[in-house]
Design a protein around this nucleic acid. Structure first.
Lengths: 151, 151
DNA sequence: AAGACAGATTATAATGATTATAAATAAAGG
DNA sequence: CCTTTATTTATAATCATTATAATCTGTCTT
């Protein structure tokens, strides 16, 4: 889906939620669209928006991200490094994607495929818990780092 | 395993790692042992240690927890609420246990059973990623809350 | 167009969690 | 004992995030 289409869809979602797409909010969403692969922190998003010549305050970025999280347009994740990171939820994705965190180089890869369908069935049945979402991160060593080490 | 035994084992692990079990460190570990079911934050641990009449500084709690994390005696988790929480790693447990976070009441349940054995095999094979550990939290509604709501 | 209102934004201050620093204390080794 | 080193403490500093109050924007009303 093109960024144009995404943006239109997001504008609609904001409206339905009773918010409007102000220039600052639009700039924030655009930065998220342009950096889909990264896992940006609020501070990083703030910097990137300012670089695009759009004026914005840090507090606005936080408020916008909170709103987008509430609308389930973005997902908020914390790894164990003390900053929250934000990620566009893929259109139509019913589940939160998984992450592969390399302990050597710190890179974060994504897994789109939902690996937890069966596991969630087990949880619902055995633990009497209604699952609505999940956070799954694997810690380990990525292919590139293993290759470097073996040399 | 009894707390005595646990404590002895932990003392040994500290020694092997080149640290000693000072009174403050012992008090911290004891609080963790006595509250295995909870997911305590540094601040909470600090309070609990002081209640046991043991004098300690907050910074020492942080340093001790960092050390215990490094030695893999405790695990550090962040949910999305801005505080880090610490959990004793069960003796012999090779994997990090899973969590069930209830979005209604905020309660955190634990799952000891490793539900990811198969999933990790898939990850190693399909994504060329060597998995050493994982973090898995399910978000949803616990049995108690569902019961309350249906009334 | 002027006034009034709600919603947004901004700069700034405040808070909360965590980490760094420097001085004091305790422990270990000779 | 004396010296050296590790540890703790109190405090200050830092970093991420949230609250506040003033200002601004746009829209509606007349």
């Amino acid at each position: 889906m093109s960024q144009e289409t995404m943006l239109r869809s997001i504008r609609k979602q904001l409206h339905d939620g009773g918010y409007k797409l102000t220039p600052q909010r639009e700039a924030t969403v655009l930065v998220l669209l342009e950096n889909e692969k990264d896992h940006l922190s609020a501070e990083e998003i703030y910097m990137l928006v300012k670089q695009k010549s759009s004026e914005i305050g840090l507090a606005t970025v936080y408020r916008t991200l909170e709103m987008l999280t509430e609308l389930k347009i973005v997902d908020k994740i914390s790894f164990n490094d003390g900053v929250a990171r934000y990620d566009l939820r893929k259109e139509g994705a019913k589940h939160f994607h998984h992450h592969l965190l390399c302990l050597e180089c710190g890179s974060i890869e994504e897994i789109e495929e939902d690996l937890l369908v069966e596991v969630e069935k087990v949880v619902e049945k055995n633990f009497n818990f209604e699952v609505t979402d999940h956070r799954l991160t694997f810690h380990g060593v990525c292919g590139a780092c293993r290759e470097n080490k073996s040399k």
